[in-house]
Design a protein around this nucleic acid. Structure first.
Length: 295
DNA sequence: GGTAGACCTGGACGC
DNA sequence: GCGTCCAGGTCTACC
C-alpha cells in the first residue's frame, strides 16, 4: 500500500533525514543509497507497522503493509506529516537567510526541517538520552530500549517499535539501569513514562499548543532529566526556533567562529545569533560550520 | 541566583 | 589486561 503526501515546498527527504542524528536512532533507519527512510511504529490500534518513506514529486510516498484500516492509514498520514514536518512553511526563514553567506544554498538544498519521532514522548526520552554521554552512547541506549521493551513487527519479530509510555512504565528502575544501561537517567525515563501513561502529563498536547516559547520552556524544564539544553532542543523539535540548544559543542563552535578559540559561555552563543530573532535556532542549526569540523 | 560536586558510561591513555 | 582520567548535561545541596 502506498500513500502520497504533499509537502510545503521546497522539500527534500534527504535534507530531513540528515538534519540531525535522529535517523541513526532506532526505530529509524536511513538507506542513503536509495534515499529511503524507514520507521517502525505502534499505532493506536496496537498494530505494529513499518513505514518506508521515499521522495515523490512535491512531497513523499509512504509505503506500508497492505490491509490497514482507514483509521490506521489516517494515523500513518498524520504521523508521517508530523515526523517530516511536511506542513512546515519556512518562507520567512529563507527570506532572512538569503543574504547570509554561512547559510547560502539552504533553499536549493531545502534545508530547515528537523526530523522528529512519531510522539513527543519518544523525542523527550531520546533527548534525555543524548545528555551527558557520547553519541555512540545515545545510539546504544535507544537501541536497548527498543530491543528490550518495544513491540515486535509481526513480519519480522527481531525489529521493534519504540516502547510506549505504558510499556516503559511497567519496567523497574533497576532493569532500565542495568539491562538498558541508562545509568542515572533510568529514574528520569521511568518517571516520565509513568506520568504520561497515568494521564498526569499530557505531553502530546504540547505539540499543538499555542503556547509562547517561554511558557513551553518552563513546562519542559519541569520534566526531571530535562535541563536547559534538552528543553531548548525539544523547543526546536516543536517548531519554536527563537531559542538555541547550547551544549558543549555549541560553545566550541561559537568560540572558534567569533572568538579566536577563546573559551565562551552561553551569553556569547546567544549574542552571536540574537539578530536572527524568531529564526535564531534554525540559523544556528544550519549554519555552515563545516570548516571547523575539518580542522 | 550562582556554584560545586555527584551521577554513569565508554573511550583514550599509560603502565 | 588493568587502572585512571576525562567528557558529556542535569540535579541537588549549599552559600
Amino acid at each position: 500500500m502506498r500513500l502520497t503526501l504533499p509537502a510545503c515546498l521546497p522539500f527534500s527527504l534527504s535534507a530531513v533525514a540528515r538534519s540531525h542524528g535522529w535517523a541513526q536512532l532506532a526505530p529509524f533507519s536511513w538507506d542513503e543509497s536509495i534515499c529511503e527512510l524507514a520507521y517502525i511504529v505502534q499505532l493506536d490500534s496496537h498494530q505494529v507497522v513499518e513505514i518506508r518513506v521515499q521522495e515523490a514529486p512535491s512531497g513523499v510516498s509512504v509505503l506500508m503493509d497492505a490491509g490497514l484500516k482507514q483509521a490506521e492509514q489516517d494515523e500513518v498520514t498524520s504521523k508521517a506529516t508530523w515526523m517530516l514536518g511536511l506542513d512546515w512553511d519556512l518562507t520567512g526563514f529563507y527570506a532572512v537567510a538569503q543574504n547570509e553567506p554561512k547559510l547560502v544554498g539552504i533553499v536549493e538544498r531545502a534545508q530547515g526541517r528537523i526530523l522528529r519521532s512519531a510522539t513527543l514522548f519518544e523525542d523527550v526520552v531520546k533527548t534525555i538520552l543524548t545528555t551527558n554521554t557520547t553519541w555512540a552512547g545515545t545510539i546504544r541506549m535507544v537501541e536497548s530500549l527498543v530491543a528490550l521493551f518495544g513491540s515486535s513487527l509481526p513480519a519480522d519479530p527481531t525489529r521493534r517499535a519504540f516502547p510506549t509510555p505504558a510499556q516503559l512504565a511497567l519496567i523497574d528502575e533497576e532493569t532500565l539501569r542495568s539491562s538498558a544501561r541508562l545509568g542515572y537517567r533510568a529514574p528520569y525515563v521511568r518517571e516520565l513514562a509513568r506520568a504520561v501513561a497515568s494521564g498526569n502529563l499530557d505531553l502530546e498536547a504540547l505539540r499543538t499548543a499555542k503556547t509562547p516559547t517561554s511558557q513551553l520552556h518552563k513546562q519542559l524544564l519541569a520534566i526531571r532529566g530535562v535541563g536547559g539544553y534538552a528543553a531548548a532542543h525539544l523547543l526546536m523539535l516543536l517548531g519554536h526556533f527563537d531559542t538555541i540548544p547550547i551544549d558543549s559543542w555549541a560553545l566550541k563552535l561559537v568560540s572558534h567562529e567569533w572568538h579566536g578559540g577563546e573559551p565562551v559561555g552561553e551569553a556569547e552563543v546567544k549574542s552571536a545569533f540574537e539578530s536572527w530573532g524568531e529564526w535564531k535556532g534554525l540559523a544556528y542549526w544550519f549554519w555552515d560550520w563545516s570548516y571547523l569540523s575539518e580542522t
